[in-house]
Computed example of a mutant assay.
Amino acid sequence: MMVAIGSHFVGQAHPVYVIGEIGLNHNGDVDIAKRLIDVAADAGAQAVKFQKRTPEISTPDHMKNTPRETPWGTMTYLEYRYRVEFDREQYIEIGDYATVNGLDWFASPWDEPSVAFLEDLNVVAHKVASASLTDSSMLRALADTGKPVILSTGMSTIEQIDTAVELFDADNLVILHATSTYPLPPEEANLRMIDTLSQRYTGVPVGYSGHERGLQVSLAAVALGAVVVERHITLDRTMWGSDHAASLEPGGFEHLVRDIRIISEALGDGVKRVFPGELAPMAKLRRVVA
């Protein structure tokens, strides 16, 4: 089973689809967003992802007036959300920049108007953030677009995942195992869920969205069959913002993509054969020829 996203195919027979999750790590700055797009393109990823909110709708009521210390001074959480949100012209600018750099681009909408906003920009796919998995109304709006949907499953029970999956066309769905702890400790990674999800939702490609420090857990996910890997990227983990500490800096992301490609090649096809490189050692070392 495979799903077409932009000019790429996602599935077991295809290269691991690597997404550089920019999210809000641009801190509301188009130039930073472009530099992060460069990071993803230079590393050899296939896509970058953002987040799109209508802050008045998507911000929980109990959070709207909570004070937030920001580089622009103290403001309410709602004001902060508006401060870091890109408008249509800014999204066109960064979307075009990603396309010119050979990357698919899309975003996680956090409310139904954001779905319409992204559809107007003709994104190639939609991503459901783990926090939105139980928002059935928004999920139906995404299903109605007919676009491929990538569904993250953090902070969710298997029953909640079942309910969400039923809303989508299985031929146009990708599921990502995730644990929504930032940063993610290894003991909460639960990577065997990749196989559990693959067995439960037969034919649906399954990948991994990671929030851990380092590369090991994401690389292990590929060895366990993940066909998508999504990781947050940042220019500097010490930058201000909630996701930077759980993100990969440019060098780390480059190494991740490199090692994913090596592991994918090393996995092979599971068919036992004698490889050409074994012929000389066999002639030299094997005493009994069967």
Rank of each mutant, 00 (worst) to 15 (best):
G207K: 05
S136P: 01
E112M: 14
D29T: 11
M239Q: 09
H62C: 05
V123Y: 04
L184I: 06
L224Y: 15
E188W: 11
I22N: 02
D111H: 12
A33Q: 05
R273D: 14
A223R: 08
E254T: 14
V222A: 03
V271C: 11
S180Y: 13
R68I: 07
V228A: 15
V228Y: 12
V271A: 11
D135W: 00
G154N: 08
F9M: 09
L191C: 01
G214K: 09
G210S: 12
D87L: 02
V16Q: 02
L285M: 09
A221D: 06
V124R: 03
L133I: 13
W110V: 07
G20M: 05
A223S: 10
T163E: 06
D259K: 10
I263P: 01
E212P: 07
P60R: 05
T157G: 02
P281L: 10
H232D: 13
W110T: 10
S108Q: 04
H232K: 08
F275L: 14
L197R: 00
V229R: 06
I161N: 01
S180K: 09
S264D: 08
V16R: 02
V3E: 03
A116N: 15
A226I: 13
R231D: 15
A189I: 03
I32E: 01
T145V: 06
A178Y: 02
V227F: 12
D144T: 09
S136L: 03
A41K: 10
V217S: 06
T59R: 02
T202E: 06
L121D: 10
D135C: 00
T70Q: 00
E187A: 05
D31G: 10
E21D: 08
S132H: 11
R81T: 09
P205M: 12
A131H: 12
K52T: 09
E187K: 06
A283P: 13
V10Y: 04
E69C: 09
Y97I: 04
R88Y: 14
V174M: 00
V257S: 00
W240C: 04
F86P: 06
R287G: 09
I161V: 07
P60A: 04
T181W: 08
P205D: 10
